[in-house]
Structure formats: structure tokens, C-alpha cells
């Protein structure tokens, strides 16, 4: 639901970086954790709509979804959590520590080279 707000924030951040470098941004990579996911299709649509007639028009957004990791308290292994099946894949242990969730981050911008 707040993809439009994320899109607005992204547009401001990318436009500011573009102005600093006096370059045209053509691509951007963002990442998000499992506890604050964004929907790729809705975000790309919202970004495309508000980026019209700005320096970010036609910019290609790439969204990386980072897995949530857990650390098993029984065998100490670190594993990717599957929310519908919360057990350690190695030892079937159910007691684990959730590792920190990745915040929604603007990782990288690709600028057009002259």
C-alpha cells in the first residue's frame, strides 16, 4: 500500500544524486528484507508514473528481496527462514534466533556514460 510513498522517496533520492553528478540515471537497485517487503510490480508502476517528465523517466528499477536468516540454537547453523515452515533444515530444531531484518535500501544507481 505504501509503495507510492517508497517510489516518491526513491525519486527524490535518485534525483538528488543525479543533480550532484550532473548525470542521467538509467537504472537503480534497491533491496528489502522479508519483514518489510515491497511489491515489485506495484513499486515499478508507481515509480514509472511519478518519474514521467523528470530526470528519472524510463529508469529501470531492480528490486532484490533479501531472505530472512535464522540461527539454530541446537546445531548453530545459519539458514534461510521459510515463514510457512519455521524449522532448521539441518536438524529440524525449532529453537532459533532471528537474525536482523534488512532495511529497505537504495543500493546502487547506474548513470548514463557520455
Amino acid at each position: 500500500m505504501h509503495e507510492t510513498m517508497v517510489a516518491q522517496s526513491l525519486l527524490e533520492m535518485i534525483s538528488a544524486e543525479a543533480a550532484k553528478r550532473n548525470a542521467r540515471p538509467i537504472g537503480a537497485k534497491i533491496s528489502c528484507g522479508m519483514l518489510n517487503p515491497v511489491n515489485d510490480e506495484i513499486l515499478s508502476f508507481a515509480f514509472g508514473a511519478i518519474a514521467k517528465s523528470t530526470v528519472c523517466e524510463d529508469l529501470k528499477l531492480e528490486i532484490e528481496h533479501k531472505p530472512m536468516n535464522g540461527q539454530c540454537k541446537n546445531c548453530d547453523s545459519t539458514f534461510e527462514l521459510e515463514l510457512s515452515h519455521l524449522v532448521c533444515p539441518k536438524c529440524d530444531g525449532k529453537d532459533f534466533e532471528l537474525l536482523p531484518n534488512e532495511p529497505l535500501t537504495l543500493e546502487e544507481i547506474e548513470f548514463q556514460t557520455e
Binding site: 534497491i30 532495511p103 537504495l106 544507481i109 547506474e110
Partner: peptide
């Protein structure tokens, strides 16, 4: 040219 940013979007 790719530039690393690494900034939180909801900053």
C-alpha cells in the same frame, strides 16, 4: 557507470 549509494529509503 554504477555508483554505490547504500542509503535507507525511508530515512
Amino acid at each position: 557507470m554504477k555508483v554505490n549509494i547504500g542509503k535507507k529509503i525511508l530515512l
